[in-house]
Design a protein around this nucleic acid. Sequence first.
DNA 1: TTTATTTATTTTGTATACAATAATATAATA
DNA 2: TATTATATTATTGTATACAAAATAAATAAA
Lengths: 248, 248
Amino acid sequence: MRRTAPTVALNIAGTSARSAAPNEHIHAEMFAAILEQRLAPGTKLSEDTLGEIFGVSRTVVRAVLQRLAHERIVRIHPNRGAFVAEPTPEEAHEVLQARHLIEEGIIRLAAQKRTASDIADLRHMVAAEQDSLNAGDHQAWVRQSGDFHLKLATIAASQTLYAYLKELVSRTSLIIVQYQKGNLSACNCDEHTDIIDALAAPDEERAVAVMHVHLQACEDKLSLNGETPKSDLHAIFSRSSKNQEPTS
Amino acid sequence: MRRTAPTVALNIAGTSARSAAPNEHIHAEMFAAILEQRLAPGTKLSEDTLGEIFGVSRTVVRAVLQRLAHERIVRIHPNRGAFVAEPTPEEAHEVLQARHLIEEGIIRLAAQKRTASDIADLRHMVAAEQDSLNAGDHQAWVRQSGDFHLKLATIAASQTLYAYLKELVSRTSLIIVQYQKGNLSACNCDEHTDIIDALAAPDEERAVAVMHVHLQACEDKLSLNGETPKSDLHAIFSRSSKNQEPTS
DNA sequence: TTTATTTATTTTGTATACAATAATATAATA
DNA sequence: TATTATATTATTGTATACAAAATAAATAAA
């Protein structure tokens, strides 16, 4: 295993929709690959390699990488290339802090604007989450858990807040990969149900309180204190293991 | 005046810092040009023309335009090009709503973390604002007014919230261009002073309240109700005036 | 064996060339 | 004259080519 880069499968979606918007497709594919942990934090994203994988030139790969960099899940070092982001503990704290703020606003709006069918949708989503959890499909569950929070932003009816939350949810996924304690799953379906119940009432203040508890519970399941529990080994052996970003 | 595009001066910063990071420089230049209203909303941003102006190829211009699009002050229509964004009244409302939310969080953090020198810095900034206002330098004042809000984000010490607020402040500038009522200046130095006084106490709740009043005052000076007061003329005469985006 | 220096290779940054799409102008028809 | 159809021009989208930088390898010195 010499040459690194994403030898990891990237699920090139068959023969479908190629002529439409190639960069859109490639972005979605890489986005999913990073969030589903098929591309680990620190992995180098070579333009040439990605171009070969997706059958396009470096031009379009570069554009996608720059977009992912703006979304903060990829980091570009000038003249050195793009890498899957490795959020620091400080950054992790900031992201959770921002989520507390933005999701409080979102849930207040959602409590005011939610319809009966919104509540039904949310309950269906939690049921699906529970199914994935029971089936042991961790990948699906992570995605669905994020989608639950984004659904609240949709109900709140602000594209601006939706965009910010989407970014924060993505970054949270990356943070969980790096900092989760042992096998503690980072979210909890019961808390999602509590949120729905509060929205259904509607009890805005309780919804806000439950959301804060929920986010705090997520943060408590991370070990942001001392060293990074997972990357430490990688950092120590960075000489021999080459898909780590070089020590700057 | 037939061929449009930015014949408007773009202040190509002399001979300085060229070799360093050309795209960074070009981004800053275009960013400033849009926010200082030298490039009006709806103006088409031709890749070729910008490349000639800045002495680079379309490659680097495209990257800058994509970045500006992600920052929401430029809009890219596939196969048709990039245009200075024209925020809708709904978008304007969303941006102000998001600012209420994010700046409440920022000012709470700032009230907790501010030092004596932060307060001094803020007072200097407001004095400079007042100077620009007295001197009738509207451009400088708009920039300084935005910088005041961003300074609060710096004091709050969250890069994440800073980035979001920077985007929101930029978009607000664009919104003010499109929707300001007559000659009402959109911000007020006195309110900035009130905010500093509350921070200096520190009285977190009062700071929050004053911030909300301040942002509401900004929104009240816009006419987001009926039609867009300024672009209407442009829209009506879009046939003859060519730097408007075509009616889709 | 380890370290420093030089050379070679790989990879990114940018410019250019060509293809595809949209906008414009011209011609034809009602 | 107004409107539709066609041809032309201009502009974006993508691939490729070359230059600059960084990494890796190889050689030389301590």
